[in-house]
Simulated assay, not measured.
Amino acid sequence: MNQQNKIRNDWSIEEVRRIYHMSLLTLTYEAAHIHRQWHDPSTVQVCTLLSIKTGGCPEDCAYCGQAARYHTNIKVKPLMDVGEVIACAKRAKESGSTRFCMAAAWREVRNNRDFDNVLEMVKGVYALGLEVCCTLGMLTADQAKRLREAGLSAYNHNLDSSENYYQEIISTRNFNDRLNTLEYVRRAGISVCCGGIIGLGESAEDRIAMLHKLATMPSHPESVPINALARVSGTPLADLPKVQIWEMVRMIGTARILMPKAMVRLSAGRSEMSTIEQAWCFLAGANSIFTSESEELLVTPNPKLTEDRAMFELLGLHPFSLKENQKLDLG
């Protein structure tokens, strides 16, 4: 790609605000232009996300159906067997995924048998030639190092929202806890996957502040998931309104302009989007989606693989292969 725009980490909050508040058509045009300078607009990375340990989390994240304190219909499941996870990763690769993400509903990683098993999962998925990502909660520096040695490619730890709004949605940890884990991940040589969620009741200024924080890190996250709140019955945010597609397009377009090299991932909320609405997100710079065998993104609905195949065919999109550097067929 013709990479004319340099990477900047010195964005001012005023610059981010100006970009975010551009007219929607202008913002989408500018973001699409930058996207084409850094990426092939016809390729989208297909990632598979697997919940390897579900529910029972002691945190109080107001959006999360896996928090033990909320009365939801989510069934608590213990850590999966290593062999079962590797089998899931193999099927994901056969379906066109090049990145396999494993999520455990923990507040923090503990040095015990479960963590040893996660390390074995990472080794096994890495051996398949896939990018390996985990989201396990807070880490220590030593735990990050052990994950890197096992073959971990990336670690997901979202900011969720702005620093000012953070305590409105989570009280069992603070914003700096998030930043500390990200620092340990970066020091260990693991790429950072970090984005946020919109639709939590936050203001436009909170969204702008979150994007500013991401774009002014010493190194931009290599991966930036943009999530729309998936409303889970029984959680404090269950009755909030659906995030409008134009809000997602605005977030994705702003993220693309600020962090041109990053993979901007269209994450939670796709099940409530039409093909046309998702097309707007791709046009604005999204170049990754998540799939799942269970048609769930952790514990919330996600489109069927057949629906994604049909969408890719209609829009002329192709999943890309990291190893062969060629386009794959989703089927």
Rank of each mutant, 00 (worst) to 15 (best):
L182V: 12
S161D: 03
D114F: 11
V76D: 01
G129K: 13
N180M: 10
G83L: 07
M138N: 05
K90W: 12
L211D: 06
D142M: 00
A103W: 06
R91I: 14
I197D: 02
L130M: 14
N117Y: 02
H71T: 12
D160V: 15
T135N: 04
D114Y: 14
L79R: 09
C133E: 13
L119W: 00
L152A: 12
D81V: 07
A150R: 05
F115G: 14
A105H: 09
R207L: 03
M121Y: 01
E202I: 00
R69V: 09
S171L: 14
C133W: 08
G151D: 07
G195T: 05
A87S: 15
R186H: 10
G83W: 07
C134D: 02
R69M: 08
K123D: 09
G151F: 08
G137F: 09
Q167A: 14
L139C: 02
L128G: 11
C88D: 15
E163G: 01
C101K: 11
N174R: 09
A89Y: 04
D206P: 08
Q66W: 02
S171G: 09
N176G: 06
R110G: 08
P78Q: 09
Q143A: 06
Y70A: 04
M210D: 01
C194T: 08
I86N: 02
R186Q: 11
F115S: 13
V132A: 09
A150M: 12
E205W: 00
N180P: 05
K90S: 11
A67Q: 07
G195F: 05
K75V: 09
N174S: 09
A150P: 10
R187S: 12
I198Y: 06
I198H: 00
R99D: 14
A92I: 10
L182S: 08
D206A: 06
I198A: 05
E108R: 15
Y165P: 01
K77Y: 01
S191K: 06
M121T: 03
V76W: 00
S161G: 09
A105D: 10
D206W: 02
